[in-house]
Design a protein around this nucleic acid. Structure first.
Lengths: 236, 236
DNA sequence: TATTTAAGGGTAAATTTTTATCTATACCCA
DNA sequence: TGGGTATAGATAAAAATTTACCCTTAAATA
């Protein structure tokens, strides 16, 4: 079934190409695991790592359930999608489950990434060492502002945006992280795409227009805030 | 149906109280709008504000659809949850729709918030002026580290954590934002709860244990990264 | 060694969310 | 002024996700 989308005009950005279909997130995912399950997997990892630190060998869905306030059945279902198989009366082997989830997420080998936008948020992400743990290796930061270009932030030099394309192609960087203000977001995306990136982690509140072979993940603080606001509203 | 959750032990945190039920996010929401719809509402707001700047009076679901690559029917459904009613052949009045969505989210009046954790991420959030736009007014930051206590970050002084309870009660602050490392997250939550907070925006990758009258929204970077990783995996 | 029990696994049902279809309305233009 | 059309609204269908149920397995225990 073809759902054609017309050309459009969004602000100053002209949408030049026709897109055959609006793909749902699930269709982009192309994985049998439901999106909400994928989102929960990192949660299980944090519990698993806690168990590992405590030297515990086994973990059961009820263990997860008690800690995370999730229903045991849901935990079992989520874990099943990674292909792990458990043992009655015991549960899952902690180390094996960690490896299986990390493998499912591709977090056992590092993907190089660029950050575009070395402002407050960009700097914060540069400084977050935990990403290494999640398969993410931030190799450089870019900005347009002469005020930050040349600065060293958390040991990484901020480069001028013009160098992005060349460096990206030479280093075969696969991922771009956009932490610029809304106005610059589409431009940042265009530059990343020219550099041959295949995935974008977008922290700006803008829907980016990208070719179909580039995947975009919007990390939207305002979405989270919206949910919190509606939840809070109930107690007014 | 009562789904009893047993007491448990998570790391050093003992879960003291029994909880009658595991409530789903939807149950906590207590709003007829589906959670994914609520998440999309801020997206519509950004488009609406763009239209407003351009001086356009009307906006239709097809306008949204073309810009956001969402299906028109979904847009209509999402907007319907806010109670707005549109006009055939025209769509919705831009200013009216902005007001309706903001009202639905409670973003037309400010909620005071504390930030606990004045590290990289906390500082970034302190510096983000856009929150005012989303009904959020960050009034103070707290930390335990003598290295940052007393510092002025984006015009706000970082206070010692011990002052949180007293200040929170006196100022009747409703919201707490947790941007401390995992180890300190539960402690930060406990302090906020003692201060009489009713909602927590949790940026740590930890499931917080809170009384039932406190709502928690986890803003989980690793969830987003997990989805992106799985999407990217498809192109390997 | 038999019995009890706390898990996991698979299938099916229920629920929630998304998408489609149909109808009515109001604008536009001849 | 009347017909065509774009778009909202309502209702129904489909798809995705969550939850329940039953069965099996393996460990613990008597």
């Amino acid at each position: 079934m073809s759902r054609l989308i017309k050309k459009g005009l969004y602000g100053k950005i002209k949408i030049e190409e026709w897109r055959d279909e609006i793909l749902s997130e699930k269709e982009i995912l192309h994985s049998s695991a439901p999106l909400p399950s994928v989102r929960r997997l990192p949660l299980y990892l944090t519990v698993l790592e806690e168990f590992e630190r405590e030297g515990r060998e086994w973990i059961s869905t009820t263990d997860f359930s008690e800690v995370l306030f999730l229903k045991p059945i849901q935990v079992r279902k989520d874990l099943a999608h990674t292909g792990i198989i458990g043992k009655p009366k015991k549960g899952f082997k902690v180390d094996e489950l960690i490896a299986t989830i990390n493998n499912f997420l591709g977090w056992n080998n590092l993907t190089d990434a660029f950050i575009v936008g070395a402002g407050a948020l960009g700097s914060a992400l540069l400084g977050y060492t935990g990403f290494q743990h999640h398969g993410l290796n931030i190799v450089a930061a870019f900005d347009v502002s002469p005020l930050v270009i040349g600065k060293i932030i958390h040991g990484k030099k901020v480069l001028p945006l013009e160098q992005l394309q060349d460096l990206g192609q030479r280093m075969k960087v696969r991922l771009g992280i956009i932490t610029v203000p809304s106005e610059g977001a589409q431009n940042a995306a265009d530059k990343l795409i020219e550099a041959g990136i295949s995935g974008i982690w977008n922290f700006s509140p803008v829907k980016l227009h990208v070719p179909p072979n580039v995947v975009v993940q919007r990390e939207d603080l305002s979405s989270g805030l919206a949910v919190l606001s509606v939840k809070l509203g109930r107690f007014d």
